[in-house]
Design a protein around this nucleic acid. Structure first.
Length: 282
DNA sequence: ACCCAGGGTAACT
DNA sequence: AGTTACCATGGG
């Protein structure tokens, strides 16, 4: 069965109805998870991670005893955040499986606590169109300007603009983002979403290959960007985004192909290998 | 000045 | 089908 997270409707944060939610998640590392290049809208100050996703604001901190607290969230959004942090997947079990491969064993042990997020598809699509041939710092800046220019302002910052808010936008109107040649790709994405030539809602139920081909109808979306969206939004864990670092890993560590133990979870394994490759400058 | 960055397109062999 | 220049921008 394809995995579909429980998503409640997009809703504004309301200051007089906030709550805390504490959950257990042994070994979870928020910093590694939120700043490893799968999400671009979290900030950390004094051990508190503040972010906006899917139109929802949250503050997250580590209680130091294997539990974590989400603060200033709405009660009905608990299922959203449980899904977002993929809390119902046992990563200890996954890492155990991965560790039968010697490279994966090192990659996992050196980067404990990474989890693959389950994000909102539209935000993820636009974010990873922006990511192409770009670095994480500048990607973050462009997305910040996108939210400030076109997203709704709330007490806790600007929301990511909704699909409807960007319908019909042109590359010229996107110029202030300084996204360069990627502006025309965003404009093309908005055309194809508006016309329903590409339907993000339908992709949950499609297999990875079919969904990948549909995303690639958008100009500026190739295999890599498509697989990022399939993995980071739709949680299709067999999607395998090949960026420059992963290509080096495949050449140097796996010239004869990927190990059997990551089959079906190539995308999650990729997240460990991505950090491994960068810290060791492979 | 040069190189690279969570790539993709179009125009070539 | 496989290679290659080029694409905007900013940081090192």
């Amino acid at each position: 069965m394809p995995y579909k997270p429980v998503l409640t409707g997009i809703r504004r944060y309301e200051t007089d109805d906030d709550m805390e939610y504490t959950f257990e998640c042994r070994g979870f590392d928020p910093h590694r998870t939120l700043f490893c290049g799968q999400a671009f809208r979290w900030r950390e100050t004094d051990g508190v991670y503040c972010g906006i996703s899917g139109g929802r604001y949250a503050e997250l901190f580590d209680n130091g005893d294997g539990t974590f607290t989400l603060r200033n969230i709405e009660k009905e959004d608990i299922p959203y955040w449980r899904s977002y942090f993929d809390l119902d997947t046992d990563y200890d079990e996954l890492v155990k499986r991965f560790s039968s491969d010697s490279h994966m064993r090192v990659a996992c042990s050196e980067n404990p606590g990474i989890r693959v997020l389950i994000q909102e598809p539209f935000e993820t699509l636009i974010s990873f169109i922006i990511s192409q041939n770009n670095n994480i710092k500048r990607i973050t800046g462009i997305i910040d300007r996108l939210c400030e220019q076109f997203g709704e302002k709330t007490d806790n910052g600007f929301l990511f603009p909704t699909e409807k808010q960007l319908y019909g936008i042109t590359a010229e109107e996107l110029a202030p983002l300084r996204a360069g040649f990627r502006a025309k790709y965003i404009a093309d994405a908005m055309e194809k979403l508006k016309s329903r030539e590409v339907d993000l809602d339908s992709l949950y139920e499609k297999d990875t290959c079919t969904a990948r081909e549909e995303l690639k109808k958008i100009k500026g979306v190739g295999d890599k960007v498509a697989d990022c969206v399939l993995l980071f939004a739709y949680h299709k864990t067999d999607a395998f985004p090949r960026d420059v670092w992963i290509k080096r890993v495949e050449q140097k560590l796996y010239p004869d192909g990927l190990p059997e133990c990551i089959k079906g979870n190539e995308g999650i394994a990729q997240q460990f290998l991505f950090d491994y490759a960068r810290t060791h400058n492979i």
